[in-house]
Simulated scan of single mutants.
Amino acid sequence: MKPLPQTRMSVDEYLAWSEANPGRYELVQGEVYAMTPERVLHAEVKAAAYVALRRSIRAAALPCRAMPDGMTVRIDTRTAYEPDALVYCGPRRDPNSVEVPNPIIVVEVSSPSTRRTDASEKLAGYFQVPSIHHYMMIDPDRRMVIHHHRVGNEVETAFLQEGTLVLDPPGLELPIAFLFEEP
C-alpha cells in the first residue's frame, strides 16, 4: 500500500491522485485521509439506502439518478467527501467522471468511528454546496435517520425511525423501512 501524500493538495490534484491510487479516500482541508474498513451492517444499510433512493426516483418518474458510494462531492477548493449514496437531477454525468458537482441529496451511514465527523464537519460542509437540499445521516445501530434539510437560509433537522420521508426537492417519498431492508 502506498503512503498517503504528505503535501496538501487541491480537489483537482486530489481527484487526479485518487484515480491512480485505488482505495477509499476523502480530502479534508487539503489532506488525504484513508477511509476505514466497514462493518457488514454498515455496508448493508449503505446498499439499502442506494436501492431505496433509486426505487423512489423510479416511482416518482423523476429525471434524477441515485449513485452509490464512490462518487466525489466537492465542498470547496480543498475539501471533497465521498458520501455513501447521493442523488442528482438532470442529464446523466459523463460516464468517466468521478465527481458529481450538483447533488441534491447526500447520505452518510454513521458508524462509531464516523458519527462525530458526520454530525459536525460533514454537516457544515455539505450545506456549503448550494445544490444540496438534504443530508441524511443513517444510524444503523439505532435504526434511525437524522434528516437535515435546507429551508431557505436555514437547516432544519428531524429524527425518524418510521414513516415516510418526503424529500422535496426533488419530490421523492422515501419509506424509512426501505433504508433498513436487507439486500
Score class of each variant (00 low, 15 high):
residue 1 M to T: 13
residue 2 K to L: 05
residue 3 P to T: 12
residue 4 L to K: 11
residue 4 L to Y: 06
residue 6 Q to T: 14
residue 7 T to K: 13
residue 10 S to C: 07
residue 12 D to S: 15
residue 12 D to C: 06
residue 13 E to M: 09
residue 13 E to K: 11
residue 19 E to D: 14
residue 24 R to A: 12
residue 26 E to R: 12
residue 26 E to S: 10
residue 26 E to C: 11
residue 27 L to E: 12
residue 30 G to R: 10
residue 31 E to F: 08
residue 32 V to G: 05
residue 32 V to N: 03
residue 35 M to C: 04
residue 36 T to W: 00
residue 38 E to V: 09
residue 41 L to G: 12
residue 49 A to W: 01
residue 52 A to R: 12
residue 52 A to T: 11
residue 53 L to M: 05
residue 54 R to E: 13
residue 55 R to Y: 05
residue 56 S to R: 09
residue 58 R to C: 07
residue 60 A to N: 13
residue 60 A to F: 12
residue 65 R to I: 04
residue 66 A to V: 08
residue 67 M to D: 00
residue 68 P to G: 06
residue 70 G to R: 03
residue 77 T to Q: 14
residue 81 Y to C: 06
residue 82 E to I: 05
residue 87 V to C: 10
residue 88 Y to H: 12
residue 94 D to P: 02
residue 96 N to Y: 03
residue 101 P to F: 03
residue 101 P to K: 05
residue 102 N to P: 00
residue 105 I to R: 00
residue 107 V to W: 02
residue 111 S to P: 04
residue 111 S to L: 00
residue 111 S to R: 03
residue 111 S to C: 05
residue 112 P to A: 02
residue 114 T to G: 02
residue 116 R to Y: 04
residue 118 D to W: 07
residue 119 A to L: 13
residue 121 E to Y: 09
residue 123 L to C: 02
residue 123 L to V: 09
residue 123 L to P: 01
residue 125 G to V: 01
residue 127 F to W: 07
residue 132 I to P: 07
residue 136 M to R: 03
residue 139 D to V: 08
residue 141 D to S: 12
residue 143 R to D: 02
residue 146 I to M: 12
residue 148 H to A: 13
residue 149 H to F: 15
residue 149 H to V: 02
residue 157 T to E: 15
residue 157 T to Q: 15
residue 159 F to C: 06
residue 161 Q to R: 15
residue 163 G to A: 08
residue 165 L to N: 01
residue 165 L to S: 04
residue 168 D to T: 14
residue 169 P to N: 10
residue 170 P to G: 04
residue 170 P to T: 11
residue 173 E to M: 07
residue 174 L to S: 03
residue 175 P to T: 03
residue 176 I to H: 06
residue 177 A to L: 08
residue 179 L to F: 06
residue 183 P to G: 13
